[in-house]
Design a protein around this nucleic acid. Structure first.
Length: 418
RNA sequence: CGGGGUGUGGUGUAACGGCUAACAUUCUCGCUUUGGGAGCGAGCGACUCCGGGUUCGAAUCCCGGCACCCCGACCA
């Protein structure tokens, strides 16, 4: 992408109504735009980053047998009445509206009900199970208070996977696979070291669920990590009984603030029973399908990465999610030879499918280009200037480590082609 | 939903109840400049969130609304 063609631009200052680091940096760098409280638009750089996160998740979901679908945002109220989740007294964050043709609907806050109902069309025999379906979809939650930039919005992207199994034993096998997939996802996202699997309340579903919590001062949750066993639990379930059950001594717990970036639930037959999702076994006997749900918030993850890695100069993206892998900085756009070298490098990157943002802007000072580059946070910067051209090399600098060196074209390509 | 706070050019700030609402930045034009948001000059850009009220006079005081932020509650 030629930076001269990128319609967004950077800002020196963040709007004063943004306090959260993630929103300040993402807005200053032109990744997102605030539309309303808790409602953000994703701009070119932000969308590329979000799509990279989504793609990693997609690959891991596919790897465990997930079938990708998209459910509607508009909901069939009758399904939610069957599970008693339509009444505002029971679930208070619906965005509800009416059809002009008559009747009431709401924007999906999650999708257990419609998907369970949908699966009735395809599940009738034990031969049809297990089945796994997931989607990336915008969820709508009428939160009393949006906060923390893109991390807690009224409209946000969620990956929700639902598993449909014959029995608890079969469910358990998949649950463990999904858990392992999540761990792998956070490792790939660059958050592996600071993300913990945490015991938490099962809410209305079951006694416990497991949350994926990324340690960060920007977090809203408090978790306790047992450094000996690696186990962790949410403050909301911290009792002596639970500690005993998990075999953890209270003294060995370390308290941390953290961001909930994902969770996995055992749903049992909580939804399949009221909605009538059942199958016939080998003996012709009918059973309710055993379900699980597995959520991840790509937009929240993006905010979390901004919080965890962002520094005083701007955003810092891990390689796997960065909007571009390389940021070429042309420091002499009016110099024929420098332009030739920089343009050629960009063309070679295009040719080799190495995603690059090329700062080809004319009349922009070196300092401004460096500052913009730091703010945008692309992992590797390649500077092309009169100095580097004279030496026949390129100056590369890693955003995360700050390490800088002069290397040849060959060395540069070796480094980028793995 | 309880409590607190803030609304002034695109952005960040200033302005005693009193001159044509000021400054920085952004943007436009010209010249200069080109390794860390460079310099000089000239411009564009605001019914001071909306609606009432008090006053000779309101960005400023009062009332209502709306929006946004923070703390708490909530977060399937």
């Amino acid at each position: 992408m030629l930076q001269s063609q990128l319609f967004t631009k950077t800002r020196r200052e963040a709007p004063k109504d943004e306090v959260a680091k993630n929103a300040q940096l993402l807005i200053r760098a032109g990744f997102v735009h605030k539309e309303l409280s808790g409602v953000y638009a994703y701009l070119p750089l932000g969308l590329r980053t979000l799509n990279n996160i989504i793609q990693i998740i997609r690959e891991e979901m596919n790897a465990i047998g997930g079938n990708e679908i998209i459910m509607p945002a508009l909901q069939d109220k009758s399904l939610w009445e069957k599970t008693d989740r339509w009444d505002d007294k029971k679930v208070d964050n619906w965005f509800k509206t009416e059809f002009k043709s008559g009747g009431e609907t709401g924007l999906g806050i999650t999708h257990e009900e419609p998907l369970t109902n949908l699966m009735r069309d395809y599940v009738s025999s034990y031969r049809d199970l297990p089945a796994y379906a997931y989607q990336f979809q915008t969820k709508f939650r009428n939160e009393m208070r949006a906060k923390s930039g893109i991390m807690r919005g009224k409209e946000f992207m969620m990956k929700d996977l639902y598993s449909f199994s014959r029995n608890e034993a079969e469910h358990k096998i998949f649950y463990e696979r999904a858990r392992a997939a999540y761990i792998k996802i956070f490792e790939r996202l660059g958050l592996g070291d600071c993300t913990h699997v945490v015991f938490a309340s099962g809410g209305i579903f079951s006694r416990f669920s497991e949350e994926f919590q990324t340690v960060s001062d920007a977090g809203e949750d408090i978790i306790y990590i047992d450094e000996r066993s690696g186990q962790a639990l949410n403050k909301e379930v911290l009792t002596d009984d639970v500690l005993k059950e998990l075999g953890i001594a209270r003294e060995s717990l370390v308290e941390k603030k953290s961001i909930e970036v994902g969770n996995i639930f055992n749903l049992g037959t909580k939804f399949s029973e009221p909605l009538g999702l059942s199958y016939k076994d080998e003996l012709g006997e009918s059973h309710s399908v055993v379900m699980g749900s597995y959520g991840l918030g790509p937009t929240r993850i993006m905010g979390t990465i901004a919080e965890v890695f962002g520094d005083e100069r701007g955003l810092v993206w891990p390689e796997a999610v960065a909007p571009y892998r390389v940021h070429i900085i042309n420091l002499a756009t009016d110099d024929e030879e420098v332009n030739r070298v920089a343009n050629l490098l960009y063309d070679e990157f295009l040719d080799k499918h190495i995603d690059a943002l090329y700062d080809d802007r004319k009349g922009v000072s070196a300092g401004e280009k460096f500052n913009d580059s730091d703010l945008i946070g692309i992992p590797l910067r390649v500077v092309v200037s009169k100095k580097t051209v004279a030496e026949g090399k390129f100056e590369v600098k890693e955003r995360m480590s700050g390490a800088s060196s002069m290397i040849s074209r060959e060395e540069l390509f070796i480094r980028l082609i793995k």
